[in-house]
């Protein structure tokens, strides 16, 4: 076997024997990380499920106060960003630097659009007094407390999702810079691949958040 640690390169760090072993390790590591993320969001999904079952009527009413159109637009934006991300990874695999940069920038822009829309929505909530706290008021239900529960979960879930988007955007910016500097090639594009996985994960979380928060009971009868 290898007697002395070989000369270290990006594609082959000194603790590995082959580039394939390193790539395997990276992707296994990333998938495990995503599992931890599933557990992280899982805690909030559990809380949501419990409370939705306890207070279906209020949660329905509170859910109907959300702007489903903006939610739908954001869903579309994120799905497109996942598509451009895939194209960036594919370009990375082929070693086409410029194309990688173009698609990463597009992904970043779409991510920013999502965050912009989200910020607009949150701002609406502040103006409508839908933010949990002393000034909270939701029309159409006497149960202001439980309505606050819904919005607590809404802000916690969309807030932590948005935080993941911000981190993702930062990672994309770093990738763009590194690609521009010529760090990646067809032989080594693992970071693009891995951050791609992360981006898709964040996308999928939203795919669950959107129907849970905005759509269930959309057309339910007002109590």
């Amino acid at each position: 076997m290898v007697s002395e640690p070989h000369v270290e390169t990006l594609a082959l760090r000194e603790q590995f024997d082959t580039a394939a072993q390193q790539k395997d390790a990276s992707s296994l590591g990333m998938w495990i990380f995503l599992v931890t993320e599933v557990m992280f969001f899982g805690g909030m999904f559990l809380a949501y499920t419990v409370y939705r079952n306890m207070y279906p009527a209020v949660f329905g009413a509170a859910s109907r106060s959300l702007n489903a159109t903006l939610g739908a637009i954001n869903t579309a934006v994120l799905l497109c960003s996942s598509f451009t991300m895939v194209l960036a990874v594919r370009a990375g695999q082929l070693g086409r630097r410029k194309v990688v940069i173009i698609f990463l920038v597009l992904t970043l822009i779409l991510g920013m659009v999502f965050l912009g829309v989200k910020a607009f929505e949150w701002n609406e909530k502040f103006q409508e007094h839908h933010v949990p706290g002393p000034a909270f008021h939701l029309e159409g239900t006497p149960q202001q407390g439980e309505a606050q529960l819904f919005f607590s979960l809404y802000f916690a879930m969309t807030g932590l999702h948005a935080l993941h988007m911000v981190i993702g955007a930062g990672l994309l910016a770093l990738l763009i810079y590194q690609t521009y500097k010529g760090r990646f090639s067809a032989a080594y594009y693992t970071p693009i691949d891995m951050i791609g996985l992360y981006w898709h994960f964040v996308d999928i979380v939203w795919i669950y958040l959107f129907p849970l928060l905005y759509l269930i009971d959309r057309h339910g009868v007002k109590p």
Partner: peptide, 19 residues
Amino acid sequence: LRPAAKVVAGYQPLMPTFQ
């Protein structure tokens, strides 16, 4: 404390909370 949580069939959720 939460009158609207379980409304009796045939009645409107009119009762205010006494919380």
